[in-house]
Amino acid sequence: MYVPILKAKLGEKEGIAQLTEEVQDNILPLFEIPLDQVNNKDKKISPVTSHWKNREFFLDFSADCHADEFSLEDFFGKFDKINSKFAIPVFHLNYSNEVCERLRLKSENGYALRVTTNEVMDEDFKDVFGEFSKRTPIKDTFLIIDVGELKADTLNTSIFTAKGAIESIPQLAEFKNIVVSSCSFPKTFQGFDKHEFILINRLESVFYNRLSKQLSDLNIIHSDYCVNHCSDFEFVLGMQPSFNIRYTTKTEFLIYKGDTLKKAGLAFENVQDACEKLCSHQLYMGRDYSWGDSMINKIAFKEVDKGGSLTTWRAYGTNHHITFMVNQLANQSDS
């Protein structure tokens, strides 16, 4: 099993909808509903079940339930629009008792508790966790531990911290499953050279493999943020969005930064040129690898006459990434 964390945007939902049945059978996605979608009463939320049909998924509203402007009824109104008999609600330690109780009543598939390593290492964690565990059956709960952003120069520290945090959690062996998520995708492409592919070290798999070896008595499930950064926003305020390609490989992210939309970054000739470069790159995995790869190949060889939008390109990147991760994890388990 693999847990991709998605922002529940249209491109990502289309990316998972186009996965093969075999790949879909091996993932349990976590959909994050951003704060602005929770608090903006005029913003419509399309159910993830329109793209992820008849399959379980984690449903996480990343909201601060203690904020003054937070509306409990608004929260559950939006939750009910997305909730289904396949949803596994995600709890946070800052959720009030009222929120937790109402979420428990809405779940048909158990629960998930999502915590950061910083929260686990906090001196009040055991007391807060104790209150949570009194009301929520741990045996029916997934534990999701979010390590956050990884850096190459502090990777050993991140592994050491995560190991210590996990081992300090009470009732660890009683959880239904333990999921560990991390992120090394860049927050912004600012400063990247344009019109060429750049390799960025992909640290999530290295982190997961080394942590798993150090916690060999636990069956840890791998999780990451696909081709997104773990923060809510990826662009610096004032930046113009650019056409880009996000392509996952064994040890790196292969990233292409094109022109901004105002400078015709999505014009077919510009997108086609980038796709042609990717298809000739030694790390390209071929048109039959995934739906995303197939679409890239069609654009490269002009089998279509449109280059797509930023949304469709997020779908291609997400689809390829999840396919790659399922294949990589399956190969590791077979070896």
Rank of each mutant, 00 (worst) to 15 (best):
N177K: 15
G191A: 01
D224R: 08
S182Y: 11
L203C: 13
V206F: 08
I200T: 11
S168A: 14
L155G: 10
E167D: 13
E196R: 14
T157D: 14
L218P: 03
F160A: 09
S181F: 11
D217N: 10
T154H: 03
E174T: 04
I166F: 13
I166P: 11
Q214N: 08
K194V: 00
S168T: 08
A162R: 01
S231A: 09
G164R: 09
S216P: 00
L211D: 06
V227M: 05
S181C: 13
C226G: 14
I200Q: 12
N209I: 06
F192D: 01
K151D: 11
S205R: 15
F185M: 04
A162D: 07
S182V: 09
P170M: 07
Q214M: 07
F160W: 02
D193T: 03
I200H: 09
S158A: 15
N219F: 01
C183E: 00
F185W: 03
C183G: 01
V206R: 13
S184P: 09
F192T: 00
L218R: 01
L215M: 13
N228T: 12
D193R: 02
D153N: 14
D232C: 03
Y225G: 04
I169V: 13
I220T: 10
N156Y: 03
D232P: 05
T154C: 00
Q190M: 03
E167L: 15
S223V: 10
H229W: 02
E174S: 13
F160D: 10
F175H: 05
N228G: 00
S158N: 10
P186I: 04
S168K: 10
R202H: 12
V206S: 13
T154P: 00
S168W: 08
C230N: 11
D153C: 00
K194A: 04
V180C: 14
Q171A: 12
I200F: 05
S231R: 07
L211F: 08
S223M: 08
F192N: 00
G191W: 05
H222M: 15
A173W: 01
G164I: 03
V227C: 06
L150N: 09
E174F: 02
I169M: 07
E196S: 12
S216N: 06
F175G: 05
E174Q: 12
P186Y: 08
S182K: 11
C230L: 02
Y208W: 15
S212H: 03
E196W: 00
S182C: 12
L199A: 11
H222N: 15
V206D: 12
K187T: 09
I198P: 02
S184E: 06
R202V: 08
P186M: 05
E204C: 12
D153A: 03
Q190W: 03
L199W: 00
V179I: 15
S182M: 07
A152M: 07
E167M: 14
